[in-house]
Structures are given as structure tokens and as C-alpha cells.
Design a protein around this nucleic acid. Structure first.
Lengths: 196, 196
DNA sequence: GTCTATATATAGATAGAC
DNA sequence: GTCTATCTATATATAGAC
């Protein structure tokens, strides 16, 4: 029997709360500086209970990565509703700029996570982080392809690379306005591609 | 009295060896996963002796950062010998592409270090990492300024951002050829700026 | 399913002989 | 200046009562 839905922590969604907290805290503190106790506290779950849902810390990190992948899929899913591929790409830039304060403080969630996981000798989670970035590249490439532009795979690398680069600089210099300025530049670049 | 220069480890340069090892190992493993024992082993210095040269781990990390800053200053110093600013920027791209294998495996030394330090709550070393990136931005901006291009500061952000972005993607996807392809694109972009 | 108490491992840092 | 042995703190993970 599950508990009644009366108490503040219903229990049925504890796993979800832990995933969400893991994504948030790992983004803010990084994988290595985040303890399971940190995540447990953020999710309002007692330390020992965490292990009922996730057997190891790596599983929690994997859950955090999956959470970010889910956010990204949700975003591109919404953008797919827009009729024009160019419009979709511009809206993605707008969404990135809209996150400028968080990005200036903690960097791109997926990018910083991938960079940190890539430093690990055990080739496991690092590959999964690469897959999340790969899926964003694939979505972007598809937009360029629909626009009948040459070398859509190269354009996708330039586009996503520009985002990762501006995110890292905004974070390193703690300046959200870098996202605004470079976002404008990226939008102008998209327009310039259509002229040719 | 210092030892004779006969033994393999002369002692006078132990500090230098530790700095070099710290830069190398921290680049490969990241700050948090690198132990002082790792650095000591890489520098061929006994663990306890490290503390004679660096009182804390943070001082070793700071030394690694200074080492990378030195490499960068050395590189831009050589580029300053070239007569034309456009030539200098293109040569910098070539240097980056020349490092493609290391970058695909471990990322940009300064970029990944800055990203990792920015996750720390204690606002100390993270600011210094930002300064190293800032100095590269300043050097780049100066080149654009000498070329009489508009908004040299913005162009510098785009240029360095493109490098950071392609480095992160090459690292996340473990593909050095991303550096080659995007390097070519970056060089073409530099040329296109001169046409206007 | 939940939670407290604790075992175990690791890493930063120090003591003190040489 | 050098180096071994060790202290101490922290974090992952588990045991076992409820």
C-alpha cells in the first residue's frame, strides 16, 4: 500500500524528485563536488533512503544527464511545432539567450557535464553525454537540411559550437550579456546563410 | 648547499617539474579527480616533499593555471612576430588545429579548467581562470582593432567562442576532425570579414 | 519502503626523523 | 631540503531496526 497523498512527501514521486534535484545540484556544483547528501537534502529525502532508488552515485549522475536530455527533447519538440526551420533555429537561439543568467553562473548544463565526464578514465557515462549532444546536433542538422543548405552537418557543428562557446565565455567571465550579444550575432549569421 | 647536477632529479627544478606535471595531469583528469599523489608521481617527487613547494592543493591548481597562461603568452608572443594581424589570427587557428588530438581527448586546457573552477562556491581560483581567458580575448581584440574592423571586442568573443565551442564538441564526440573542419570554417570567416 | 547508525576507503595535510 | 608514517576529515555505501 502506498501512503495517502496527504503528507508533504508522498513517496511515489521520490524518484522523480531525486532526479530533478540531481540535475539541478550537479549543474550548479559539478559532478565531483556534489555529494549524495547534497542531492538528498535538495530533494528532501533522507540520505539512506536515496540508495533504495539509486544504487550508486553514478546512477544518480546518469539520472541527472537523462533529466537534461529530457529538457532538451521537450524544447526541440515544441520548436518542431513552428512551420519554418529558420524560425525554429532562431527560436532556439532565443531560448538560449533567455537562459543567460543561469548560463553565466553555471554554464550550459549538458556542455559542462559532458566536459567533466570526458575527464574520467572509465569510458561509460562520458559516451552517454556525447550522445545527448549528438542528438542536438542531429536535430539542428535536420533544420539546415530542410532549408536545402549545403553541408548541413558542418553548419550544425558551427551552430551548436557557437552556443557552447558563448556559454563557456559567459560563464568564465560571469557576464550574461555575452549571451545576448553573441545570440544576436548568431541570428544574423542564420539570416546571412539564406541570402546565398 | 644544493646537490650536484649529477642525479636525475636535481632538486633545484623540482618546483618547475611539479608545475609542469600539475598542468598536464589536471588537464587530463580534471581538478577534482587529480590527487596530489598523482601529481607527485608524474613529477617523480615523493608525496611528502610536494608540501615543501606547495602548501595546499589549491596552490598546485593555481600553478597549473599559471603554466597554461604561460604557454598561451608564449604562443601569442611568437605570433606577434608576424607582420600582419590577419596572418596572426590565421596562425592561431592553425596552432589550435595542430593540437586537435589532445583537444579531442581532453578539451582546451584553459577552457575546461575555467569551467571546472567556476563550479566552486569559493570565488577565488575561478576568477583567475577568467583572467587567462580575458587576456586571450584582449590579444584577439587587438588584432581586429589593427585591422580597423568594427566592434573588435564582439569579434574577439566570436573568434575565441568558436574555438571553445569546437573544442568542447571535439572532446564530447571524441573526434579530432571537428577541429580541422571548423578550423577551416573559422579561417574562411576571417577572410570574409576583410571583404566588407 | 523508510531511516539511523556505522563500516570502509580515500585523500589532504602534518609530524618528525634524517 | 627530503621523505616515511600517520592523523583526520569526508564521502560512498551498507546493516539492520522499524
Amino acid at each position: 500500500m502506498t501512503n495517502s497523498p496527504k503528507g508533504r512527501a508522498r513517496g511515489a514521486d521520490k524518484r522523480r524528485r531525486l532526479m530533478s534535484a540531481a540535475a539541478r545540484v550537479v549543474h550548479q556544483q559539478g559532478v565531483e563536488r556534489t555529494t549524495i547528501a547534497d542531492i538528498a537534502a535538495a530533494a528532501d529525502v533522507p540520505l539512506g533512503n536515496v540508495y533504495y532508488y539509486f544504487k550508486t552515485k553514478d546512477e544518480l549522475v546518469q539520472a541527472a544527464l537523462a533529466e537534461h536530455a529530457g529538457h532538451l527533447a521537450e524544447l526541440t519538440g515544441e520548436l518542431d511545432e513552428l512551420p519554418d526551420p529558420l524560425q525554429r533555429l532562431k527560436a532556439l537561439v532565443d531560448a538560449w539567450v533567455g537562459q543567460r543568467d543561469t548560463t553565466a553562473r553555471y554554464g550550459c548544463p549538458t556542455g559542462t557535464l559532458a566536459a567533466e565526464l570526458d575527464k574520467r578514465a572509465d569510458g561509460g557515462l562520458d559516451l552517454e553525454a556525447g550522445e545527448v549532444i549528438r542528438s542536438l546536433l542531429n536535430w539542428t542538422e535536420q533544420q539546415f537540411r530542410e532549408l536545402d543548405l549545403p553541408d548541413p552537418d558542418d553548419l550544425a557543428l558551427t551552430f551548436v559550437g557557437a552556443y557552447q562557446g558563448m556559454s563557456l565565455l559567459a560563464n568564465a567571465l560571469r557576464d550574461p550579456e555575452i549571451m545576448t550579444g553573441q545570440g544576436t550575432r548568431l541570428t544574423r549569421w542564420l539570416d546571412s546563410l539564406m541570402e546565398a
